[in-house]
Simulated assay, not measured.
Amino acid sequence: MAEEADPTSVDPDYERHGGFPRFSPADPGPGFGEFVAGMRRLQDLAVSADPDDATWDVAAAKVAELVELLAPSQAGELVGPAGRSLKLPAAGSLLLPPWQITAFGPDGVALDVTFSRYHVGGNNAVHGGVLPLLFDTLFGMTIRAVRRPISRTAFLHVDYRKVTPIDVQLSARGWVREIDGRKTFVNAELRDPDGALLAEANGLMVRLLPHQP
């Protein structure tokens, strides 16, 4: 990812936006990457495994042990490495499908992204509600890439063109369509390996006023 511009250079009121966390990259040890990869696999199994009752009891006990191990280290927003580890898929966030940035600049953002069993809504197709999450994330990244001030999503509209498959590397792209004062109008699309359009989105990002969170 390209280095983030100093937010105050494009928005002098940055520090007054309700304490909006200032992003800084994290570089945790390899154990975190292995942990995230394992958790992604566990999420897939959590929605697809069908073992006997005894196996569920053992699995529940192991999860409880893991919760007990990590609970004392719980930290605030943008303190832990999740979402800030730029070398990992989706920057180490389990909220999002694993993506990797392929372009980041004034023309917008491009990603490679792969959905898995965890994201299925039915019939091995990605749940329709997952795609707005991807597009909203892409909109936020696009705002940063084009060096617009801190903005929040005012609206997001998605058109579904084809079924989105799992276990296939797809490409997503976001770009700015128009800027009007505090308003930034953004577009995005998701395509399969053959270039077929799976879904597209348009939205409005609005620059925060001083003291707005």
Rank of each mutant, 00 (worst) to 15 (best):
A188T: 09
R173T: 12
W175S: 14
E178L: 13
V158K: 09
A172R: 00
P165D: 02
R177S: 14
R152F: 12
R173D: 12
N187F: 12
R173F: 06
Y160E: 11
V168L: 13
E189Y: 07
V186F: 06
V163E: 04
D159T: 15
T164A: 11
V168D: 08
R191N: 13
L170N: 04
R161N: 12
H157Q: 08
K162R: 15
R161C: 09
I179H: 01
W175E: 07
K162C: 06
I166H: 03
D167R: 02
G181T: 04
L190P: 08
V186H: 04
R182S: 03
R152S: 08
V158Y: 10
Y160M: 06
Y160L: 10
I179S: 06
D192W: 08
E189I: 10
E189Q: 15
L190C: 10
S151R: 04
N187D: 09
F155G: 05
Y160T: 03
A188Q: 11
R152I: 10
L190S: 11
P193Y: 00
I179F: 00
G181Q: 03
L156P: 00
T184L: 05
G181K: 05
W175L: 10
E189L: 14
D159K: 15
I166R: 02
R182Y: 06
R177I: 04
V163M: 11
A172F: 01
T153I: 02
W175F: 12
V176F: 07
R177Y: 06
E189N: 11
R161E: 12
S171A: 14
H157I: 01
R182M: 01
R191C: 13
S171N: 13
R173S: 04
L170G: 03
R177D: 12
S171K: 14
A172Q: 01
I179V: 12
V176A: 14
A154Y: 02
T164N: 11
D192Y: 06
F155S: 10
S171V: 12
E178T: 14
R191Q: 10
